[in-house]
Design a protein around this nucleic acid. Structure first.
Lengths: 251, 251
DNA sequence: CGCCAGGTTGAAGTAACTCAATGAATGTGG
DNA sequence: CCACATTCATTGAGTTACTTCAACCTGGCG
């Protein structure tokens, strides 16, 4: 993506070591600097942002942002999985997105978020006050571009999932979910990957538009057909990712 | 949205009438200048873009961009409705978005579009070569912001629709669709609005993840319950939009 | 140990699908 | 102008995939 270098063309001064090059201590080992938002910020910008930042650990099931609430912090996800969901008045629920490290959490220029964000697993985030982030966006075109880029990625994922929700069978849905997790958790190793499911059966059901029972039944079917191996309900091994992909209905 | 004025703060010179203020003839009456992409461009920018622009009329059912094709033009929708859809290898199809005037069509920085865009109604577009648009994006922060804003809007819509696809009943789905069209076609007049459906029953089914027959049955049910009036299969009147909204399951 | 939450399994019910026939609107050629 | 084909929508009858309801595991913990 030539595009992503956009921000860098903005400061073409001769290169002397300055504040801008010094990465703050806390950021050195941070996930978000590789691929995350912070990857487009220089040392002094990271330092400025860090004056107001707060690392937080969030337990599974805890809300990060409530539906309709006014968001006044933005965060980077450092570890764990966050589920974004919508609920109807009568309690029916749909998970509309999963976010993994190092995704950015929070809606820049929120027309009030109509989502609930909840930790699915134990999650670590690095939170920034709204104002600081927005000031930085205004100063750094590369940052806004990075955010735009993430939202396009999320849009792609949302639309992929619409196909799954609207047109796939229960079996294909469950396989699609497993495939999604397999490719997000275990980045490489395309043969024989293994992982822990970040979601309970109830969450999976809410993600797939199914009931818990149907998810369970399809899981056991896939298990009996040896498409997956399951231990302790949560730990899954995929011997052949391509067979799983087929079961998911992806040609 | 204070945000959208961002672009304007970039040129704060004393105001004398220049090229920049002169709106090209073709653009004067154009939809896209009000709310569309072009609203953030000045006269000389519009003129530059217009040197390469081409208005086209597209008949219903004609593809604008093929799934997996390399997109080399971007367009503004001036009139009509465009459907974005995905297809599985075995032919199952899902419409993942509808675009109305003055939406922007085409993916800036396409990681090849995985969508098919097809005119649902007779559609007029204003097409620009890819390079011209990308050059202009690089020069005009306000433009990229505008695009970002549209993609956030599309993301919201996609997620709303995921709830519809995953958790609503057939009746609620059809009502949701009618509500969507009612609010997009007939912008105001929130009581007693009337419109032509831009989609065939087959398209509606593909949008809702249902079959044609189920769509038809639910339409007749809603008609018998006087939630809607239908003439000629395509022309719909909604006497009470709030009743429709209720039927759609929105609290 | 007994309780509880999370998961599985079975049997019965139902919403939506499939298949098939019919109807309405539009166009074509004799 | 009328038969005829064609496309799009409606309606009915029978089937099925998923849900609902209920019982039953399994592992962790006071």
């Amino acid at each position: 993506m030539t595009w992503l270098q956009f921000g860098e063309t903005m400061d073409e001064k001769p290169h002397i070591t300055t504040d801008e090059d010094v990465i703050p201590q806390v950021c050195r080992a941070c996930e978000a600097r590789h691929g995350g938002i912070c990857s487009v910020l220089n040392g002094s910008q990271l330092a400025a942002l860090n004056k107001h930042s707060a690392k937080r650990t969030i337990d599974p099931g805890t809300e990060v942002v409530g539906q309709g609430e006014n968001v006044n912090t933005y965060s980077n996800i450092l570890r764990g999985v966050v589920k974004l969901s919508k609920m109807m008045a009568d309690g029916r629920q749909q998970i509309v997105g999963l976010q993994f490290a190092p995704d950015f959490l929070g809606r820049p220029f929120s027309r009030e978020s109509s989502l609930t964000a909840e930790a699915a697993t134990t999650t670590e985030i690095c939170a920034f006050p709204r104002a600081a982030v927005e000031r930085m966006i205004a100063d750094t075109p590369g940052l806004e571009h990075k955010l735009y880029d993430q939202s396009l990625k999320e849009l792609d994922e949302a639309r992929d999932w619409m196909l799954t929700l609207g047109r796939k069978t229960a079996r294909e849905k469950v396989a699609s979910f497993l495939h999604l997790i397999a490719t997000h958790i275990d980045p490489e190793a395309d043969d024989g990957c293994t992982f822990d499911l970040p979601l309970s059966r109830a969450d999976i059901a809410d993600f797939l538009g199914l009931t818990i029972e149907t998810v369970s039944r399809q899981m056991t079917k896939l298990r009996k057909e040896k498409v997956i191996l399951v231990e302790n309900n949560r730990h899954v091994t995929v011997p052949d990712i391509e067979r799983l992909n087929e079961a998911a209905g992806n040609d």
